[in-house]
């Protein structure tokens, strides 16, 4: 018995190394869902409490500057409100005349990114809003420039955003000026691709790719990226794939908007999205 312990002691360096390596490899080969929960638990226990503190300090440091900007914006927006009030009344009069029904207003939840990764190729964000603020899984996450991702998990006061760089992320998309639907997804290196484009396509480099509104999560018209180049898909040479330059640079994102209007995530979403032209207009104006 003592020989055994002596052996263990003599080879402790290699044994500890092998044990830790095996644990890491076991973690790496866990099924997706278990891996997700384990990663989330570690993230929540070790990182999020500290990053919440830093996030708050950062928030207060920038509060004064932000306040000044907001005051200026407030003044400009107040003037704009007066103008829009008049336009709204005029619009209502026209609606009554033409018997149009007004659309439901779009409801966004503004969120701060608490943490966005501390290593290579992070594919999630943690944001500071959760179920108590109305955030639920599968809501789209956006910034004014375009698509960021979708909510995949929520706590009471925090949520996890699956970014478009995540390998499981998919969104039905199309060129903004054409009706040629395809799927946008992330490649193994986090690059953005438009998959399954027919050989005789009208898609060309420089085209803006927007969400098509199909698929039940993302409304129509959100910019996803711009076509950088077209190439044949490796295995199926009857289709092409387009390499996209993402509309949103994730390194620059510190605040996001969750599209909280549940009408947009109904199972009949395809039809509802077709009707939600106000959102398309919102982006076009931007």
């Amino acid at each position: 018995m003592s020989k055994f312990f002596l052996f263990l002691w003599e080879h402790r360096q290699s044994l500890i190394f092998l044990l830790l390596l095996l644990i890491s490899l076991a973690v790496l080969s866990l099924p997706g869902r278990q891996r997700f929960h384990l990663a989330r638990r570690i993230n929540r226990a070790v990182i999020t409490p500290f990053q919440m503190v830093v996030s708050q300090v950062d928030y207060f440091l920038h509060l004064k500057k932000e306040n000044e900007i907001l005051r200026k914006n407030n003044f400009i927006l107040a003037l704009e409100v007066y103008r829009l009030e008049e336009a709204k009344k005029q619009n209502q009069r026209f609606e009554r005349l033409l018997e149009f029904t007004s659309q439901t207003p779009i409801h966004f939840i503004a969120c701060k990114v608490i943490s966005g990764g501390i290593g290579e190729k992070a594919d999630i964000f943690i944001i500071d809003k959760g179920t108590v603020h109305g955030v639920v899984p599968n809501l789209p996450v956006l910034v004014p420039e375009g698509l960021v991702g979708k909510i995949i998990e929520t706590d009471a006061k925090r949520s996890v955003v699956q970014l478009y760089t995540h390998q499981d992320f998919r969104v039905s998309a199309k060129p903004s000026q054409k009706e040629e639907r395809a799927i946008v997804g992330s490649g193994p290196g986090g690059e953005l691709y438009l998959f399954n484009i027919p050989l005789r396509t009208q898609v060309k480099p420089g085209d803006l790719i927007v969400s098509s509104g199909m698929g039940g999560i993302f409304p129509k018209g959100i910019p996803v990226g711009t076509v950088a180049e077209l190439e044949k898909e490796e295995e199926m040479e009857i289709t092409l794939r387009a390499i996209l330059t993402p509309a949103v640079d994730l390194d620059q994102v510190s605040e996001v908007f969750v599209l909280a209007d549940t009408a947009f995530v109904s199972p009949k979403a395809g039809l509802l999205f077709e009707a939600s032209d106000s959102l398309v207009n919102l982006w076009n104006e931007h």
Binding site: L21, V27, A39, A122, D123
Partner: peptide
């Protein structure tokens, strides 16, 4: 080296669900 590598790697990995464990390895 191994122990610190494991701890730091796992913490970095908690932001990358696709390759959770790769930094640690």
């Amino acid at each position: 080296g191994s122990i610190s590598g494991f701890i730091c790697g796992i913490i970095q990995d908690s932001f990358s669900y696709t390759y959770f464990g790769l930094h640690a390895v």
